[in-house]
């Protein structure tokens, strides 16, 4: 269990933080200022802190895992695994929302929102697709009207195929 999922996550965080430390000078254009308290100060400090703390977390976690042959309760609270279905949940929601963001400028709010909410109904356990479609349409129209007429916020209503 030394290389438990949590420890692997700590290693990933350390690696990402080191990469961030390397690219940081290219992302902060401070005109080559050598002053310690410049624009790079806090990003450098926080990244270093993340690396050090993740390393400490890794060592302590690994140490207790090695002694007790299991994840230590003190350091590990949820102790849940990240299995196939967890991955599937993350993937489905991400795909649904990214598709919504990509399609919105072309199809408009009403159509994209209708399909998004219908998809969410179905993957979350809804069964009767006809009823769900009606519920989706009502929800989307209600949301649109609330934004448009109650709060005066305009959302692109209809498809704009000129963007394709």
């Amino acid at each position: 269990m030394i290389f438990s999922l949590r420890n692997k996550l700590s290693i990933i965080i350390i690696c990402l933080s080191i990469i961030a430390l390397i690219i940081l000078p290219y992302q902060v254009n401070d005109g080559g200022s050598s002053f310690f308290g410049g624009a790079q100060l806090i990003p450098n400090l926080t990244l270093s802190l993340i690396i050090i703390l993740s390393f400490v977390d890794l060592v302590i976690n690994g140490f207790f895992s090695f002694i007790k042959k299991k994840d230590h309760n003190f350091l590990i609270s949820n102790g849940e695994s990240f299995g196939f279905y967890d991955f599937l949940a993350v993937l489905l929601i991400t795909i649904a929302f990214v598709t919504f963001a990509l399609a919105l400028p072309f199809l408009g709010y009403l159509i994209t929102s209708f399909f998004l909410i219908l998809f969410l109904f179905l993957i979350n356990g809804g069964k009767n697709i006809f009823k769900l479609a009606i519920l989706s349409a009502i929800s989307v129209i209600f949301m649109y009207c609330t934004m448009r007429f109650l709060f005066g916020i305009y959302l692109q209503t209809l498809p704009d195929f000129s963007l394709i």
Partner: peptide, 29 residues
């Protein structure tokens, strides 16, 4: 499933209403 699906749509609509940019939708995701 009804409650959380509507919450999902509200999340995106809320961000759209506040910023009017698709970029912020990616930040949310």
């Amino acid at each position: 499933y009804i409650i959380y699906s509507i919450v999902g749509l509200t999340c995106l609509t809320g961000v759209l209403a506040a910023s009017s940019t698709i970029f912020d939708l990616y930040i949310v995701i």
